[in-house]
Design a protein around this nucleic acid. Sequence first.
RNA 1: GGCCCCGUCGUCUAGCGGUUAGGAUCCAUGGUUUUCAUCCAUGUUACAGGAGUUCGAUUCUCCUCGGGGUCACCA
Length: 461
Amino acid sequence: MVVTRFAPSPTGYLHIGGLRTALFSYLWAKKNGGKFVLRIEDTDKARNSQEATQAILEAFEWLGLKHDGDITYQSQRDDIYAKYIQQLLDEGKAYRCYMSKEELTQIRETQMANKERTKYNGKYRDFKGTVEGVEPVIRIKAPLSGEIIVRDGVKGDVSFQSEDILDDFVIARADGTPTYNFVVAVDDHLMGINEVIRGDDHLSNTPKQIVVYEALGFDLPKFYHVPMIHNSAGKKLSKRDGATDVMAYKEMGYTPAALLNFLVRLGWSYSDQEIFSMDEMMELFDPKDINKSASIYNTEKLDWLNAHYLKNTPNTTLAQFLEEYDLVLASHDKKEILLDELKERAKTLKEMAALVKEIIHTPNSYDAKAVKKAFKEGFVDILNAFASKVESCQELHLPNDYHHLMQEVVDELEIGFGKIGQPLRVALLGKLSGPGLDSVMAIIGREETLLRIHNAISANS
RNA sequence: GGCCCCGUCGUCUAGCGGUUAGGAUCCAUGGUUUUCAUCCAUGUUACAGGAGUUCGAUUCUCCUCGGGGUCACCA
């Protein structure tokens, strides 16, 4: 069974890049009828917070990504890690190192001055005694030479020379807490994770983790290192790059379907297909089709996708989404006409909410340019002619009912459609752009239509 | 700097030795629409450079250049 995982450190909100690797992991597990588990990497007590964990969970909830089983918190597994550390100590695969931080720094500085790579010198590798007054760290015995090959499902086989990249790295700090590369390997194994999909910034950590796997006698999982998402400057996307908080996309009015579709196509493709429902993603996603190169984050396509999904969202769902924007449309008798009209025009839910408000609220001002263009000589007569038709007609419900009245005015006065359309538009909406007027009038109704026409005439003549 | 990864339109990408190098987005133009948007049509734009292998390289190899990642008692 395929078991994948998402393993964030809770130092902030869920970030767009993290969400993408989470999505890839989720899809791959689901496609294979496997499990997608969540592990919170909170071993750094100084930097992580409960709120951050909640923020990540909230984002998952919004997007409908469900993890399987209980969440694993690394902070609650100290005894497990201690056991494996002791095992390595007992087997002579790890040792206590009494080097002071000062001495370590000293060595590093010397190495840097000599333009050598910085590495621990192995001073305590074979040391058996103890040193008074120093709390030791525990280091793992890493191979001094030889080759480590990461068999990566995205990048192919990547070969590292031990002497280039390894030294006896710390697996437990002086205070006894274990370090990242150690716990990742232990937990991935213990949690049964056999397919690791993560950012390629971890590729160079992988040899270290392999050292841990091998020291403990664990089988290696399959690795997939997915390329970074870069900002427009070509650098790794970071929190400084503006909208990287997943929940910010909710506020901006994007739907989960659009965001997920956008992200799945960033670094992955399935021939020419652009639109993927969740079901299609689960059916078609395969990490072997992930791109090798980094992609630049650019939301133009997200806007297009969002607009696409809005057009194809049922009105009842749309009405629910819009409740986030203080719009209660459930009881509006013309909500179908309203939403049908607006979902073709809005790129985001936020925009759509604003458009709804523009229609249902009586305009309290008129755009100056629009007034100049539309309220030319004779407009009062035209509007009055139309208003009297509306007044004399009691049964007006559908856009077509209003359209007929406009047509009659146009025919009787022998004018073009624009002659009535422009002033009527400004009267109804306060500006020269917007949805079809017949629909607008059907939505706001006969009384409101008359009110807006009269308001416009008295304010502008 | 060492090590590692990457390099097709502005952007997301297809391509897996022979293609007029395809799609999407963006942008521009035209059409539809009383307006704006949608929608439809059309168009501009790409294989980083250089050697080699081959009858033939975007595709394989090497070098150069460019970009990125990583080098902690952070994760």
